[in-house]
Every structure is written in structure tokens, then in C-alpha cells.
Design a protein around this nucleic acid. Sequence first.
DNA 1: GTGGTTGTTGCACGAGCGTATAACAAGGGC
DNA 2: GCCCTTGTTATACGCTCGTGCAACAACCAC
Lengths: 191, 191
Amino acid sequence: MSKRAAPEARRAELIAATARVLATRGAAGASVRVIAAAAGVSPGLVTHHFGGVERLVEATYDHVAARVGEALEAAVTTAGESPRERLAAYLDASFAPPIADPALLATWIAFWSLAQGGAAMQASHAHHYAGYRARLEVLLGEVGVAAERRHLAAVGLTALVDGLWLELCLSPGVFTAADARAVVAGYVAAV
Amino acid sequence: MSKRAAPEARRAELIAATARVLATRGAAGASVRVIAAAAGVSPGLVTHHFGGVERLVEATYDHVAARVGEALEAAVTTAGESPRERLAAYLDASFAPPIADPALLATWIAFWSLAQGGAAMQASHAHHYAGYRARLEVLLGEVGVAAERRHLAAVGLTALVDGLWLELCLSPGVFTAADARAVVAGYVAAV
DNA sequence: GTGGTTGTTGCACGAGCGTATAACAAGGGC
DNA sequence: GCCCTTGTTATACGCTCGTGCAACAACCAC
């Protein structure tokens, strides 16, 4: 039996275990029993702390999305002052660890497949992508892209990065992370 | 009880039913009993004709991928003679029915989530995408793109179209199919 | 018409699923 | 030191899952 823990700590452990299970076993393996075993606790705790598996997966989605956002923001921060470099850092971060990770793709696919009927998670997804695009529009503005062109440029860049990231994780070998960065750089230059 | 049918006809019915179930219920709902009910037959038939659910889903994947390829090719054929128009038709077809369909996205996500551990389906996926890229490289060559630049251009275009298609289906409303076509046209012009 | 091949059904089996619930135990307030 | 709150476990229930199997029935060869 696991020692008694503070609710927030236990919730964090369960979320971490869920992310681990989603990455390794996919959506199909994300059962209460498997997650609880991964966290080293009893299955009943999931119901106790989250009221159901669905709610736990939603919480995990928010947590993973937040960590991805943090990783992107960290890349921008360490990039320095140049607006051009900051934009490039934000985009290129998607092709390097910890984002370009097959395990993260597995997690994301699991979310998508579980989001099919869940309004809460669809809203979460829309919010997360809107945030990504909004940050991108700011960075595009800082490099001098006209305000009326920023939206479409952000849409295109988001799609391009997403598509490249997807294929990079799904079938590595077709092209490299360096190729992806070059493609994105070409697109940015064209904007 | 269903009338006796030729094996190929019954197999085709089961594949169609599987595609219908994947689109409406997602990967989680693709059980033998649900699929058989959708096809109006007994659950045992799945085992009899395909030897298991996994094999049936793989066959459905191949079928859906082939139909997508046909739809893209049909768009090229009806586009006429101009290489530029043929390329545009091939790319834009991804943003119009029957490809830009949330049900098809649901099917694809289901495949991805089921492909996590299946070598056969990963190979099928790689083959399908390689075909898409190869067709794209031919069309790019016909509009005069230099041979050594075709590969990276095809990689970028594939990713861009994929990303736009994904977001178009996931959260329609953020941008329109016309926006997607404009973004792709801009990318093509830059190449 | 008759026999054999085979598509088709219905059922049984074991396993895993999510969740509710009662008993247990750990820790804090007094 | 005692009690009460509450985190935690173990168990039980009803459900769905995939699959194997024996019986049934439709069609074809002859």
C-alpha cells in the first residue's frame, strides 16, 4: 500500500502515470487498472481523485499541453533578442526533444482518438492551438510581417510545423529534423 | 440471418461497415460485435473471413487509403492539361469532399491509434505516404521544379496539406477551405 | 435429386473493463 | 491519547470484449 499523500501530489502522480501509459500503450491501454498499477496505487484511487478515467485523461491532456507550451517558450527565451532568431527558435523547437518524440506523438494520438466525442477535450484542444497560433502571430509581428497577413501566415506555419512533426515522428527516415527546419525556414523567408 | 454471399462481396461489406463504425464511433467502438451489427451479420463472420479484428482493420485501412488516392487522381484527371492546374487540383482536393470530411479524419485517427504497435499497418502507412509524395514530385517536375529541389518541396507540401487538412477537420471555423487553398497556393508560388 | 463444400449463426468461455462500496489506516486538531 | 476526517485498499457486480466451436443451411457439382 502506498503511503498517504496530499491530494495534489497524488493527482500529479496519477497524471504522470497516465501520460506514461498513453505513451507506451496507446489509448487502448489506458485503463484504470493499468494506470493505477503504473502509479503504484490501487485502482479505486482514480475514481476517488478524478471521478472517472475520462476526467483523468482530460487532466493529463491539459498537463501535457502546458508542458509543450513551456518547452516552446523556453526555446524562445534562450534564443536571445533577435526577433528573427526568436521566431526560428519557436518553430524549430518542434523538431527537437522533448517535442519531437514518438512517445509524445503516441500521447497526442491517444488524446485525439479519445476526444472524438468529448466536448471538454475538444474545447481544450481548440484553446491550445489558438494559443500556439496567437504566440506565432506575435513573433511574426516582431519580425515585421504586416498585421493583415499575420493570421494566414500563422495558420500556414502551424499546419506546416504540425505536418512535419507528425511525419517526423510517424516515419523517421523519410526526412530529418534538419530537413524540417530547412523547409520551415524556406516558408518563413517566403512570408 | 443474412443470405449467403460470395466471400469477396462479404469481405467488402465488412470493410465498408468497419469504415462506417470507425468514422462514427472511433477506434474504441470498433469491436467485432459492433462491426458485425453494422454489417447486419453475425459476429463470428469477422473471424471466419478475416481471422480477427486486427486483420479486418488493416484491410479497411488499405481500402480507405486506396479510395483517397483515387479521389486525388480523379481531381488531377478532370483538371485538364495545364501542369500548373493539375498540381493545384491535386493539392486542393484535400480540402474538398470527400477528403475534407470529419468522418475521414476520425477514421484516420483510429488507424493511427491502432497502428501504434502493428508493424503491418505502419508499413502500409509508410507506403501510402510515399505514394502521395512520389505523385507530388512528378507533378512538381511537370511545372518545372528542378529535380534536386523536388524532394524537399514534396515533403513540405505534403506536411502543409496534411496539417491544414487536420486542423480543417478538427476545428472548422478557425479558417476555411478557401484559406487553406490560398496558403498552399502561396507555398507553391514560393517554390 | 443427392452429397458435399462452405458461408453463417448462436452460444459459451475466460478475460478485462469501469465503478460502487465497505472496511481499514494514517495523520491532524484538541 | 483520543477522535474524526479522509486517503487508501480490496472486493464485488454487471458489462463488453475476442474467439473457438458445433450446428444449421444455402449453393454447386454431379
